[in-house]
Nucleic acid binder design. Structure first.
Length: 621
RNA sequence: GGUCUCGUAGCUCAGUUGGAUAGAGCAACAGCCUUCUAAGCUGUGGGUCCCAGGUUCGAAUCCUGGCGGGAUCACCA
């Protein structure tokens, strides 16, 4: 069947300069089959599976695709150079697309006809969503949970990393043809919420966000801080009176009051519930503003106050089936020592739930609600252990989808001075940061005189896009699992490997298209495959050619960073190209028309890639 | 101490299922605006890929053991 396929392809290729879309997409498959056939004919033996390894030829060498021949030596029983040479000769003679080859050590570099590349470019220019899989035979339903804030304080830099990752990964997965639902589980209950509420009651003086002229989440956050300050004072006083530190922490009047408030909340005390509703509303309205500025959204928002009782039945069921066990004091545990972990509590001795219990319940409910094939949690790496346990327990309970659960774990964001600590006031607030980025973009553009001719409205639009782009790109270009350092000064640097550099490149391309129109040069729908192209042009086309594969790999690895770095490479390459390859040459319109065409494709990829990252690109800047 | 994770240029980071001479940016230095956007381009210097073994044609990448940083190991969430 392999050979038949090859025969048909070779036959077709020999007769036609214009290659069908299908074949272009499959160039690497064709090469693969061709090498298999070559090996069989030359050495009388089929190559072992996976021994045919193609990769893109590195830039410093001549060629487009490279066959690594080392794995084939076992069959050829000849030195690497000779083997490569023989296969290369065979391919050049038998495959129309191969125009040339060269051998360096054990590497066979194959050059593909330039007309192939141009035809390829023609094809993708017709594809509105190049690189995206729009129709998939069996699309998966994927649930991705991200953000998951507490309603007692505003969002900070760590949440930004979470939100950007979640949003971008959702886009990425969707680009591969799967159905993705974004959900947010808001943690709106618990002792920490009561702390802010209590502080407001005591010292709030009936203030509201409107009266204070402040975002609701910030206002509530202030009371949370206030609580902590007053609480510490009480502890200090008690310790000075001779109480032990630990005891003081537990017996300070404020903490007792907060605990009492939580009990009232659980008993649905009308006064407490009413205050709780008000304050949560303030916070959530504040969050909405931040989410909107950040450009992220959700298909569904869950509240922990609705879901915190879930999971208990699941645990009891597991207890009945003797998957879990009960201690003498009545608490329920899972024994994970066989899996190399320890024992984990699932129900307290008083029968109430713990964090894990809830998570078991919400996982089960959500996966079944959506009939999802895969669940992804975007949560910081401090919860690696939690999710490891969660997955194991769900597996023990017999849910086969537990295998598909994935904890997209990301590292902390640190500052040059060290970690962010709320107590020391070194937390970078999300809203402040967003504003600061825009302000800096404004200052920079004024300094450079970039936006002098635009109206205030246009100007604001553009600097917002740039400031936000700088922040998003800075965070997303780093591999999620790494602990990253966020240097505010450096992030606002718009030179080099940054979002604004990429945006700038895009803006240039757009400007080029406009200028071309002014010059009366028409953008072609299609390029004649026979025209000559330079090495640099070819290089750009090849970079474009990588895009679908990059998306595929990035989606598989849940890694927007891979897309980010790819787009930067493309933009950089284009910028270099742009500099010494005149595109709007008056003398030779055919060349400039091709470059115009090429630059448009580059622009499309940049736009598409940036969109996956959740970064806007400006038409001008 | 157990488990997980990271360690690449002075700094921030890339580096594809193991492939060729390990790459960018920032910072430093030297150039380039009468020419499609100089938020740009070109050049120079800068490396014990934490260390030591192992696997193999080939290791920054995989395995083992160290060293160093981080996270986690609650009847908190």
């Amino acid at each position: 069947m392999c050979n038949l396929h090859l025969y048909l392809c070779a036959n077709f290729l020999a007769k036609s300069d214009i290659i069908s879309i299908k074949l272009i997409m499959d160039i690497e498959i064709i090469l693969n089959d061709a090498v298999a056939k070559a090996v069989e004919e030359l050495y009388g033996e089929e190559p072992v599976k996976n021994s045919i390894q193609f990769q893109k030829t590195r830039k410093d060498f001549e060629g487009d695709f490279t066959l690594v021949v080392f794995p084939l030596l076992r069959v050829s029983k000849k030195p690497p150079e000779q083997t490569a040479d023989e296969i290369g000769t065979y391919l050049k003679e038998n495959i129309q697309q191969i125009s040339d080859f060269n051998v360096i050590k054990g590497f066979l570099n194959l050059s593909v006809n330039k007309s192939f590349w141009i035809s390829y470019l023609n094809d993708i220019s017709k594809d509105e969503q190049y690189g995206f899989i729009t129709k998939k035979e069996d699309p998966k339903v994927i649930l991705i949970e991200y953000s998951s804030p507490n309603t007692n304080k505003p969002l900070h830099l760590g949440h930004i990393r979470n939100n950007l990752l979640g949003y971008s990964v959702a886009n990425l997965l969707q680009s591969q043809g799967d159905k993705v639902y974004k959900v947010n589980l808001v943690n709106d209950r618990g002792i920490h919420i009561c702390k802010s509420m209590l502080a407001w009651q005591k010292w709030g003086d009936e203030i509201t966000p409107e009266k204070a002229g402040k975002k609701g989440d910030h206002l509530v956050g202030d009371f949370y801080v206030r609580f902590d300050q007053e609480y510490k004072k009480e502890i200090k006083d008690l310790v000075e009176k001779g109480m032990a530190g630990e005891e003081a922490k537990q017996k300070a009047p404020l903490i007792l009051e907060a605990q009492e408030m939580l009990r009232k909340w659980e008993a649905k005390d009308p006064e407490v519930i009413s205050l709780w509703k008000d304050m949560n509303k303030w916070v959530l309205e504040g969050f909405d503003v931040t989410y909107k500025n950040l450009g992220v959204d959700f298909d569904k928002i869950y509240f922990e106050s609705d879901t915190y009782k879930l999971g208990k039945e699941l645990v009891l069921e597991g207890l009945n089936k003797e998957i879990f066990f009960k201690e003498e004091d009545g608490s329920v545990w899972a024994d994970l020592s066989e899996e190399g972990l320890d024992q984990k509590i699932l129900l307290r001795s008083d029968g109430t739930s713990v964090y894990m219990t809830q998570d078991l319940g919400t996982a089960q409910q959500r996966m079944e609600d959506y009939n999802a094939d895969q669940g992804i949690y975007v949560v910081g790496n401090e919860q690696n252990y939690h999710f490891q346990v969660l997955k194991l327990i769900l597996g023990k309970l017999g849910y086969d989808w537990s295998e598909s659960l994935h904890h997209l774990s990301y590292g902390m964001v640190e500052l040059p001075e060290g970690k962010m600590k709320s107590r020391e006031g070194t937390v970078v607030d999300a809203d402040d940061l967003l504003n600061e980025m825009t302000t800096t973009a404004d200052e920079m553009s004024r300094e450079l005189g970039k936006l002098d001719n635009y109206s205030d409205e246009e100007r604001n639009e553009i600097i917002k896009t740039i400031g936000l782009g700088a922040l998003k790109y800075f965070i997303l270009k780093v591999d999620p699992k790494r602990t990253m350092t966020f240097d505010p000064k450096e992030s606002i640097d718009f030179n080099g490997n940054t979002g604004p550099f990429i945006q700038y490149t895009f803006a240039r391309i757009q400007s080029l298209q406009r200028k071309a129109k002014d010059h009366g040069i028409q953008l072609k729908d299609e390029i004649n495959p026979k025209i000559n192209i330079t090495t640099k042009e070819l290089q750009l086309i090849k970079q474009i050619h990588n895009y679908p594969e990059v998306l595929k790999e990035a989606a598989k690895a849940f890694s927007p960073a891979q897309v980010a770095n790819y787009v930067y490479d493309l933009a950089k390459e284009f910028n270099q190209f742009y500099h010494d390859h005149p595109i709007l040459s008056e003398e030779d319109k055919s060349i400039s028309a091709f470059r115009l065409f090429l630059s448009k494709q580059v622009g499309n990829i940049i736009k598409s890639g940036m969109k996956l990252l959740g970064i806007d690109v400006p038409e001008r800047m």
